[in-house]
């Protein structure tokens, strides 16, 4: 009850500063914007539910009269005569996503801990470089990275996906900012007095307390790797990923539009689920993401 009252009092300022016309304007803009965002995806879902005769209607319609799951059922047959069984693509996508995200969380949280709390020489310069790399374009890294892959002999292997995805500058940056604003130095000082070393502090204090930050790295890592299409670094068919299958299905012409949409819808679901699960943690992390100059 008391908390309710407090919340009510805190909202009092709105009485004076919110005009009805303004509220109406906001509502209007949000509805328009929301429709613009959702309609293309909605069209995608609707098309995936259309039976063949409705797919062939011109002009295409935004609605479906007799929804069917046929396109999804056909998908299994359509993908069974691929060179490599579908399960292999599913495994590839899952494996590289899980492995790189997990390792990225581990590596960037350890580095973020050192950047935030230690006094070692060079940490400011190194973190400055990480922060500057937020601006560097990933595409322009591709060519020199290719040369490095060649030298390391990891062309055409899982490592070509996983290794470069581990040192994510956004991930490390967000974790460092989160530790800065959420873990007081006194906590670590107390642990040090109790005889805890660096590894112990990392494992028993930092890791459990920065769960929101690792959920955030999880979301961004998942999102990036789930839509990863092999570039020149992976050529073997059995190492390719699900988005690659999607593009080969949608290349099949008008009759396959329904199936192409069906697989697109299926691929959209996992990132959305991950976001729904992680969203409160992500927002908590982002609130400490500021860059101070």
């Amino acid at each position: 009850m008391a908390r309710h009252r407090q919340k009510y009092q805190k909202m009092q300022y709105r009485r004076y500063t919110r005009s009805r016309a303004g509220n109406f304007f906001f509502f209007f803009i949000l509805i328009l914007g929301g429709l613009f965002m959702v309609l293309p995806l909605f069209y995608c879902v609707v098309t995936s539910l259309k039976p063949l005769d409705e797919l062939l209607i011109f002009p295409p319609r935004f609605t479906v009269n007799r929804p069917t799951l046929e396109n999804y059922r056909v998908l299994g047959a359509l993908l069974s005569n691929l060179e490599v069984p579908l399960s292999r693509y599913v495994f590839n996508s899952l494996f590289i996503t899980v492995a790189s995200t997990f390792l990225s969380i581990l590596a960037s949280s350890m580095a973020a801990f050192v950047f935030s709390k230690s006094k070692i020489k060079g940490r400011k310069v190194l973190f400055g470089i990480v922060q500057a790399m937020l601006l560097y374009n990933a595409v322009t890294l591709a060519v020199p990275q290719y040369l490095i892959f060649c030298k390391m002999h990891i062309i055409d292997s899982y490592l070509a996906y996983i290794l470069p995805a581990i040192p994510s500058s956004v991930g490390c940056f967000l974790m460092k900012q989160f530790i800065d604003s959420n873990i007081p130095d006194t906590l670590l000082e107390a642990a040090r007095i109790d005889g805890a070393g660096i590894f112990r502090m990392y494992r028993s204090i930092i890791m459990p307390l920065i769960k929101p930050a690792w959920m955030t790295v999880l979301l961004f890592g998942f999102q990036a790797m789930w839509s990863a299409v092999p570039s020149g670094t992976v050529v073997s068919e059995e190492l390719k990923t699900l988005p690659y299958v999607m593009s080969s299905v949608s290349a099949g012409g008008i009759a396959r539009t329904g199936s192409a949409m069906a697989i697109t819808v299926l691929l959209m679901i996992p990132p959305i689920l991950v976001f729904i699960i992680t969203q409160s943690n992500v927002l908590e992390t982002m609130s400490s993401s500021g860059i101070k100059e």
């Binding site: 581990l106 590596a107 580095a111 940490r123 190194l126 290794l163 581990i166 040192p167 490390c172 590894f199």
Partner: peptide, 8 residues
């Protein structure tokens, strides 16, 4: 513990 990240 900085090494894995910074190395990669």
């Amino acid at each position: 513990i900085l090494l894995p990240f910074m190395g990669l």
